[in-house]
């Protein structure tokens, strides 16, 4: 392989890549901020709603989980604005798509967590006169949420990986910036390798954190929900 590697050209634009990373984190963070509470609402609807609520909510969750994120993103960016007569910029479309998409996955995490709590806990709460709402809030959720933390963080990491799609609607995330720099410097090999390395460092650090947390929770005898 007689290829002359030249990272210097690329490193000059390194701050541009970091700006891209910042945008990646921004979209991920906002999607989490909206997606998690929405996920809880969806999970509660699916678990405790009547048939009129349960079925449509279940359908929406399954739809969001089984269609490719890129199809959802394109729908919200290209179709929704015409349909609803509003203007949506790439950033808003990205946040909207990933909030909804991740809420479906978080709903399933919440559901698994709530269902993993033994029935005796419900009965005990009832026995001391708690209403179902109160039992859920004071007894079930605090225990369930604790078990869900690892599954929940894994989902957040998955979300960060999925946000690389925003480049396709021209939102300047890390991957989009890498592509731009590759085109202006003709150094695609170096740029994409560095971009991949940045993603790896960030995501691998998060994964290691989650694994550490999992072993610690396992050691303290706390079972985790999946």
């Amino acid at each position: 392989m007689g290829y002359d590697w030249d990272f210097a050209v690329v490193l000059r634009d390194f701050d541009l890549l970091l700006l891209g990373l910042l945008n990646t984190l921004k979209v991920t963070g906002l999607a989490l901020l909206f997606g998690v509470p929405l996920g809880l609402v969806l999970a509660l609807c699916r678990l405790y709603g009547n048939a009129l609520i349960r079925w449509p909510v279940g359908l929406v969750i399954e739809f969001l989980r089984t269609t490719p994120p890129i199809a959802q993103l394109f729908w919200f960016f290209f179709a929704l604005p015409i349909l609803a007569g509003v203007e949506i910029n790439p950033f808003e479309a990205a946040v909207l798509t990933f909030s909804l998409q991740s809420s479906a996955f978080f709903a399933e995490v919440f559901r698994g967590g709530i269902q993993s709590i033994e029935r005796g806990q419900w009965e005990a709460a009832k026995a001391i006169g708690m209403t179902r709402n109160r039992a859920l809030r004071r007894v079930i959720l605090p225990q369930a949420v604790k078990r869900m933390i690892p599954a929940f963080l894994e989902r957040a990491i998955e979300l960060m990986k999925t946000t690389t799609l925003v480049g396709t609607i021209s939102y300047a995330d890390l991957l989009f910036r890498a592509n731009q720099i590759a085109q202006s410097t003709y150094r695609a090999l170096e740029v994409f390798t560095i971009a991949a390395a940045i993603y790896f460092v960030v995501i691998f650090a998060c994964s290691l954190g989650v694994r550490l947390l999992e072993t610690r929770m396992a050691r303290s005898g706390e079972s985790t929900a999946r």
Partner: peptide, 17 residues
């Protein structure tokens, strides 16, 4: 621990070199 899209783009734009 890297996004799939990054992998695909790497193989399309970087690997051919």
């Amino acid at each position: 621990n890297t996004p799939v899209l990054v992998q695909i783009m790497w193989f399309f734009f970087a690997f051919p070199i």
